[in-house]
Amino acid sequence: MFPNPFDYYAPETCDDVYALLHEHGYDAKVIAGGQSLLPMMKLRLAAPEVLVDVNNVADLRTMAVSDTGLRLGALTRHAEMERAQWPDYPLLSATAGHIADPIVRNRGTMGGSLAHADPAADWGAALLALDARVTLADAARSREVRLDDFFVDTFTTVLEPTELLTAIVIPAPPRESRPFGQYLKLERKVGDFAVVGVAVTASLDDAGRVVTAGIGLASVGPRPLKAQAAEALLVGQTLSPAVIREAAEAASQAADPVSDRRGSAEYKRTMVRVFVERGLAKIQADWELVNRASA
């Protein structure tokens, strides 16, 4: 299998990328890791006239940790996140290890995954849970967009054809709290897309109260979903079994799954509830472990 013919450009600066996107507009497609785009091009589901390869743009590889958060260049590979040891962002490595398989993770990028906007992708759910923002830029301007406002529909985002997703910005967890994160994924076989994916994160204070909480859902809607009502239920609470059950139920109501060959809508909705419950229970157990150790 091979793609339709295309013109290939491999610019080395963002400005050159912007110029190419400006020149070719809808005919151009940006390729980063290519682990979703190339399979689609081989199946002729995508047939761009022009391919703009951003792998040589050094500015897209930068990674910066500060007091306010984490800024990851769009070219950050899944494997880099899997290996990352950032105690403040445990959900990142927890999620990365579930994406596709180790060889795909060596190549696929976070920015590419988000721009591709597959509703089943794991990063969408995890980064929604983390309240991430993305930086979108073209020659004229750069704007930061909340990820929840970035995703529009299946394979559709607010990214303009002339714009490049350059970075992902993740806010730091609040001070005086400890962040926890769990990614739970139901898949038919290793490396498959999620039947249901659930990202759960929470920052707990010394008393075990939730300071911030995030719940993101993959594969149960036309786009990755943020279970906001469930998140709100958790804030200020300790993770008692009753609170966990209530939040899990609310998250399952936020899901909007369809029945397909991977499972019925009812099954998927139930699995969201089960996974949120398991994720939060694990976070509570992890918190108790840490607290006991430091007591």
Partner: peptide, 11 residues
Amino acid sequence: PVKSCTVLAVQ
């Protein structure tokens, strides 16, 4: 390691 069916030669 990369899957060479999913990388362009020019890359």
